[in-house]
Amino acid sequence: MEEPNKTENEDDRDESEQRVWSWGAGTEGQLGTKILQDEHFPQLLHQFSLSSISSLACGGAHVIALTSAGKALSWGRGNSGQLGHGEVVSNTLYPKAVTSLDGYFITHVSAGWSHSGFVSDTGFVFTCGDGSFGQLGHGDNASHCSPVKVSCFVDLHVAQVACGMRHSLVLLKDCSGNQVYGFGSGKRGQLGVSNDRVKSVNVPKVVSGFEGVEIVGTAANGDHSAAVSVDGHVYTWGRGFKGFEDAHVPQCLNSSLNFTKVALGWNHALAMSGEGEVYMLGGNHLGVLSDLQNIGPAKHFPVDLREFNLEKVPGLDGTKITDIAAGAEHSVIVTEHGEIKTWGWGEHGQLGLGDTRDQTSPVTVSLDYDLNEAASIRVFCGSGFTFAVTMP
């Protein structure tokens, strides 16, 4: 770790310390660069040198960092109280501790468009920010500037929270019964609570269709929800991707592949298999790979179009992928060699390629870093920005 008396601009930094880079949309402070501007190239953030970041969550224009000590830091847009600092602010330019959670060891965080979720090692879940659609789960539509414990789960043990555009999912730990809950906006089916159209709910409701299925991970973005089961199946529900209608209960993707992670954008999804292959689902522009016109006569039959709409990301043959992330309309992957590749929407520089052009296939991002120094690199996406973190 860097010595405490070193300045943030010194070049003689400890080679073993953690690196954090950001790029893309930055006009609300979400990049952590202390400058309100977009960045087209990866920017190394020196202020993280004394913190060990175990995970990040990127939302519409704010970021939450989780440290290995169980502390949460947040920065970026705070106009709805989503930073959890106890006040509404236009933006915060640098990481600031969420001090109201100091009495808890935080193990999981998530950032939605304008709300945030935090999970403690004791199984409590806290939410803050915009609650106008009930996405905070407190039984009303009020907003909160500090994290508030969701009372529905105080007698249960929460493992994860996932925040989407205006809805949230909660996954319970070691639960053989009702294990996934949804709350917030549900008009596109993203809550998964029934086959009927539900405008919104402000009290957590059980997501239907997971009886006898063990879920190990959830994801939410835009009006989409997804989950991965212990046996490698991917389930999606909510707004329909290109090729199929909105789903009001979870639908299992018809594939024999064994998936380990899913990442959601606004019009597409990425799914990573246990073999390190990456597949893309849905969308209709800005780097999306699918084209339903190519599925031939099969499109006239009552088949699950998602099977045809799931395509392997090209140009990666023989390369194992170790991490994936999806923004609103862009995608990021990490190879086994530590290379970061991006494609999709590039208007704000979120592809990290030095320009604002869109890309229709993966392009390697240049980092001023010896790839052999880190055991791994993880990537995280907000709506129009990207973070990369080395994990020693």
Rank of each mutant, 00 (worst) to 15 (best):
residue 1 M to S: 15
residue 1 M to Y: 08
residue 4 P to R: 04
residue 6 K to S: 05
residue 9 N to E: 15
residue 11 D to I: 12
residue 13 R to Q: 15
residue 15 E to T: 12
residue 15 E to P: 10
residue 17 E to F: 09
residue 20 V to Q: 01
residue 20 V to H: 07
residue 22 S to Q: 02
residue 23 W to L: 07
residue 32 G to I: 09
residue 34 K to I: 00
residue 42 P to Q: 12
residue 47 Q to V: 10
residue 49 S to V: 06
residue 50 L to S: 13
residue 52 S to V: 15
residue 54 S to C: 15
residue 62 H to C: 05
residue 63 V to Q: 03
residue 70 G to V: 11
residue 71 K to A: 06
residue 72 A to R: 01
residue 77 R to K: 13
residue 79 N to K: 10
residue 81 G to Q: 05
residue 86 G to H: 02
residue 88 V to Y: 07
residue 88 V to P: 04
residue 95 P to T: 02
residue 97 A to W: 00
residue 97 A to V: 05
residue 103 G to W: 10
residue 109 V to G: 01
residue 110 S to H: 06
residue 111 A to L: 00
residue 111 A to N: 07
residue 118 F to N: 01
residue 119 V to I: 02
residue 120 S to T: 14
residue 123 G to P: 10
residue 124 F to V: 00
residue 124 F to I: 00
residue 134 G to N: 08
residue 135 Q to V: 10
residue 146 S to I: 02
residue 151 S to K: 14
residue 169 L to K: 08
residue 181 Y to K: 04
residue 188 R to L: 08
residue 188 R to E: 15
residue 190 Q to M: 13
residue 191 L to N: 08
residue 196 D to G: 11
residue 205 K to P: 00
residue 207 V to R: 03
residue 213 V to P: 02
residue 221 N to P: 00
residue 223 D to G: 01
residue 232 G to Y: 02
residue 234 V to K: 05
residue 236 T to E: 07
residue 239 R to V: 02
residue 249 V to A: 03
residue 256 S to R: 14
residue 257 L to D: 12
residue 258 N to W: 06
residue 260 T to P: 00
residue 261 K to H: 14
residue 262 V to H: 08
residue 262 V to G: 04
residue 263 A to R: 06
residue 267 N to Q: 15
residue 273 S to G: 06
residue 284 N to C: 13
residue 288 V to G: 04
residue 290 S to T: 14
residue 291 D to H: 10
residue 293 Q to K: 15
residue 294 N to F: 10
residue 303 V to C: 14
residue 310 L to I: 07
residue 313 V to P: 01
residue 313 V to S: 07
residue 317 D to T: 14
residue 318 G to Y: 06
residue 319 T to Q: 13
residue 320 K to C: 11
residue 320 K to N: 14
residue 325 A to Y: 08
residue 335 T to Y: 04
residue 335 T to D: 05
residue 350 Q to G: 06
residue 352 G to E: 01
residue 355 D to C: 14
residue 357 R to T: 12
residue 363 V to S: 06
residue 363 V to E: 03
residue 363 V to Q: 13
residue 367 L to F: 12
residue 371 L to Q: 10
residue 374 A to T: 07
residue 374 A to W: 13
residue 377 I to R: 04
residue 377 I to E: 02
residue 377 I to T: 03
residue 379 V to W: 05
residue 381 C to A: 14
residue 383 S to V: 11
residue 386 T to N: 09
residue 387 F to K: 01
residue 388 A to Q: 07
residue 391 M to H: 12
